[in-house]
């Protein structure tokens, strides 16, 4: 008797699931806004690295004609990297918060209700996506003030925002997975250095043309490089649908993959405990 009523009940629950996801996203966002100190590192460090790199390497535009042909200044080169760095730093937040919910028992409050289990995940990741979009605008704004330019115009900025959101979900989802599996905010934060590895083995800080050997090989296969290179071209060479597509599809692919993994972790946790 229950077998027959399940699909019907699920269909009726779809608007509920949406409402629940929205409400949980809202909670994620407001909890970020209520502890702004947590966001400071993900806003400050990228700017710090950017300033450092810009100061250290600005003469590269004079020394490397090939580089100079594309980039008016090293700041131009650094803009997408700065944005992505901020997004990556910020994306651990979702995982930390998820683990925190488990630690304080709030997760149990959610589980004791008939809330759609997927909403719990969606709420967390949607919060991260919004943060990612906000970061994209924030960094673009600041770097533009200091002289960086976006030749691809509004379209390129829009792509940057979308990609940032997707990437926040993509990386955030892995953090959430870790949070679900360990139930420990410390464990999630302990994985933070992996974000650095991801950044530094990409073309974030050095043009790939100037790399060599294994470093170049790794950077070539790092999806962050694909996204970065496309974003850079959009920004410095002008609008190109192909570049936009590569960046968005790569980031979306990462997002889908990590959602699938996180859902798996959630199911597993629910299966072993409840």
């Amino acid at each position: 008797m229950t077998a027959a009523s399940v699909p019907a009940a699920q269909a009726a629950n779809r608007p509920q699931a949406l409402r629940q996801s929205l409400q949980l996203s809202r909670r994620a966002v407001s909890s970020m806004l209520r502890q702004p100190q947590v966001l400071v590192p993900s806003l400050f460090f990228p700017l710090f690295f950017c300033a450092l790199n810009a100061a250290a390497f600005d003469r590269i535009t004079g020394a490397e004609p090939e580089f100079a042909a594309q980039f008016d200044s090293f700041l131009d080169f650094l803009l997408p990297a700065t944005v992505l760095q901020g997004v990556l730093f910020g994306s651990t937040q979702a995982g930390t918060e998820m683990a925190n919910d488990i630690e304080i028992g709030f997760f149990d409050r959610l589980l004791a209700s008939p809330v759609s289990r997927t909403s719990i995940l969606v709420g967390r990741l949607a919060g991260g996506a919004l943060l990612g979009a906000a970061q994209a605008l924030f960094f673009t704004g600041i770097l533009t003030l200091f002289g960086a330019s976006v030749k691809g115009g509004v379209g390129a900025v829009a792509v940057l925002v979308v990609v940032s959101s997707l990437l926040a979900v993509g990386i955030g989802g892995f953090g959430v997975t870790l949070g679900i599996r360990t139930g420990s905010a410390e464990a999630v934060q302990g994985a933070f250095p992996l974000i650095f590895v991801l950044m530094f083995t990409s073309s974030a800080f050095f043009p790939r043309d100037l790399m060599s050997g294994w470093y170049r090989a790794v950077a070539t296969y790092n999806p962050i490089s694909w996204i970065l290179d496309s974003l850079r071209d959009l920004q410095t060479l002008g609008w190109s649908a192909e570049d936009a597509l590569v960046a968005i599809v790569t980031a979306a692919g990462l997002a889908v993959l990590s959602i699938v993994v996180a859902l798996g972790a959630l199911r597993r946790r629910l299966r072993t405990t409840t």
């Binding site: 909890s31 709030f106 149990d108």
Partner: peptide, 14 residues
């Protein structure tokens, strides 16, 4: 059912 668990797990930020 309504459930109030032993350690009232409440998000302190809300």
């Amino acid at each position: 059912i309504g459930v109030a668990l032993q350690d009232a797990a409440i998000d302190p930020l809300m």
